[in-house]
Design a binder for these strands. Sequence first.
RNA 1: GAAUCUGUAGCUCAGUUGGUUAGAGCGCUUCAUUGACAUUGAAGAGGUCACAGGUUCGAGUCCUGUCAGAUUCACCA
Length: 763
Amino acid sequence: MDKSYSSTTESDIYQSWEKSGAFTPKIDKSKKPYSIILPLPNANDPMHMGHALFTIQDILIRYHRMLGEPTLWLPGGDHAGIETQFVFEKKLQKDGKSRFDFDRQTLYSLIWDFVEKNRTLNQFQMKKLGFSMDWSRYHYSLESPIVDNVLATFRKLYDDGLIYRDEKIVNYCTFCGTAFSNLEVVHKNVDSHLWYIKYGPLTVATTRPETMLGDTAIAVNPKDERYKKLIGQKILLPLVNREIPVIGEESVDIEFGTGAVKVTPSHSPEDYDMAKKHDLEFIRIFDYDGKSNQNVPEKYRGLFPNQIRQLVIDDLTTAGLMEKIEDYSHEVGHCYRCGRPIEPITAPQWYIKMESLAKPAIAAAKNGDVKFFPSRFKKTYIDWMENIRDWNISRQIVWGPQIPVWYCLDCNPQIKINFLDKDKNIVSGFYKNIKDKYSIEEIKSGLQSLVAPVDASFVVDKFDNCPKCHSGALIQETDTFDTWFLSGQWPINTLGFNPKDSSKSSPDFSYFYPTTVMDTLWDILFFWVARMIMFGLYLTKDVPFKTVHLHSRVVDSKGQKMSKSKGNVIDPLVMTEKYGTDALRMSLVYGIAPASDFVVSEDKIRAHRNFVNKIWNASRFVLMIIERFQEKNPNLKIAPLSQGGVSEERGGLNDDDKNILNNLNKIIISTTSDINRYHFGQASENLYQFFWHDFCDVYIEKAKDRGEDVVPVLLTVLINSLKLLHPIVPFVTESVYQIFKDIVHLEEPQLITASWPKAIKLK
RNA sequence: GAAUCUGUAGCUCAGUUGGUUAGAGCGCUUCAUUGACAUUGAAGAGGUCACAGGUUCGAGUCCUGUCAGAUUCACCA
């Protein structure tokens, strides 16, 4: 053995595991399976420390594999809709291009190629980190069987009356060109102003003066004596010179501002609700590109909100209508992806009714069909589920499966179409206005996007001709699914669920579903975990996993979240190169409380590199003693003590032997229970303490003064320690095991599939 | 506005259902070591466990309040 442990053998060891078939479970109906579906990483993204935390799953998987259970860890990769398109668009921007330069088919295939180039990278990286995943069951989210199932789910939801279109106010990012769900909006505090604007006889206070061009009412509290008599009257909207009514609305706070609120139903969620209640007019002044449209006076057209804001403020001031301006800070929604302010805008979108889906998902948490670890997340989950809102599943991007709905253009001439004509010029207009100039083929081949009116008729299956008017001008909805709509069905679809006839699902599905544990970061509890539970129950009548284990995020030694902008990112693969994979893995779990932040620093990794080396060198010492013994007794078989008990015939045990075997038994019991309870930090700490101090510093030091009678106990403690440590530090332990296997008698061919230790009976 | 979490050694954090002198890593001090390992060993300094009450034979651990920090959710102009 070399003088110190070298991690250069890691890839050989990994390959030998893979070749031996250890990662691929055999379905054995007499045994209970253990299964984990990997939270599918973005296929396009290199691994960061967050991904390195899959180590937790690997520990569970390796432990259960050693317990002899058929153990499946199913890996995958996500196309990651908006994330990937965003990254790709940034790349386009560098080349001086944008998404508007391409029709959607071309753009889609460009992104496809872009992802394919990178897709194998993180598979390679996961192998580097030692993850014992079953690569024969790897799935990519855009594989056609997966996508087919996702579309079938849409169809089922539609048939069950759970899908509807509506033109509500949505969170729209004009830069990304798509709507988002509430979860994807980041609220940030912004220092701004409160503008007091004179509207005829009263004054309103607003944080968004630019939206006044779309005002369709003024709201006051009916109890407010100041304005009571104005309710029902009409007021002339400044700058626009349009008459708008004064309405009475209880939700208006008399104390705030002037007690009078301008109402812009198309660009404010609260105003939208008010308008629905009071049957007000909706005037949308911003289009989906973020610029103002025909609904505003000419001088304000074609401008972005901030440009109009300045113009409006100037004009109001000139007209003497700006009463005062106060400093004011408030929460403004921002796009989680590009960071720009979200424009609330009314737009037709696709929704899922959530109430009936949430109900069984709440029950599953309450009755323990799904358990949460740590348990406090159960409350968070139930609170969210009980207040759930309908889910906007449509995204106006190209990267992802399109919603499987077709419109007949002849039945719906009001559909607005954006496309590139044969000369690559952008054409935009209602179908009725462009149908005479362009053929349906030209429109389809250059299609970028379409916007169908909220009441447009559609069919959910693909027909060659319109079932109603028999026109051949059918065109598919250009909206794609929210990524989570697909990944929410991931456990079902990767295991081979058959949506048409669940009894014809694959053997994997019937054996491994529901899976045992879902381990993921708590920040996608609502995005992902909740949706998987709802979809699982809706489609299969069974939860997708029995336990949710939520872990926390990786932070630096100062407790700060790692991010590129802070410059505190530690690249797990660089650490792997520098200190070995085992050192990284150990440092990720060592001393970490369940579900608290993971503190990672290079110092810590270095410290555990030392520990890994300690394992190596202690083994080297044991080997040396054994070889010395073998020289004297060349014919004697050397093997660890059997778990059945210690034979006194070998010359008996002295107090040191009994002591270390007692401690070994204790550590076997505590490690087993710690892993069962997800206390990996505790398990690793105890193992560290036992191996380094009890075994090396005490027992081995004393053994130096003894004869060869130490060999059986020495070997027993070492081999059992290797087994206990294997889930956490798989490479060094397997590597030592293989060396020993050639020299002493070890029954099991490799450590990865060796049996988990049990306490040894002492007489 | 609502909810949750955290506050233990210079730094980063453990401490399982309350039980004898509160632990680890890094850092610091002193010493040892050509024999598995300088990626080592031995010894040591350093904490009124945020604060104030309470329950208990006994509280870092349970309860209440205060202070400080963090996070999540939420349509307030």
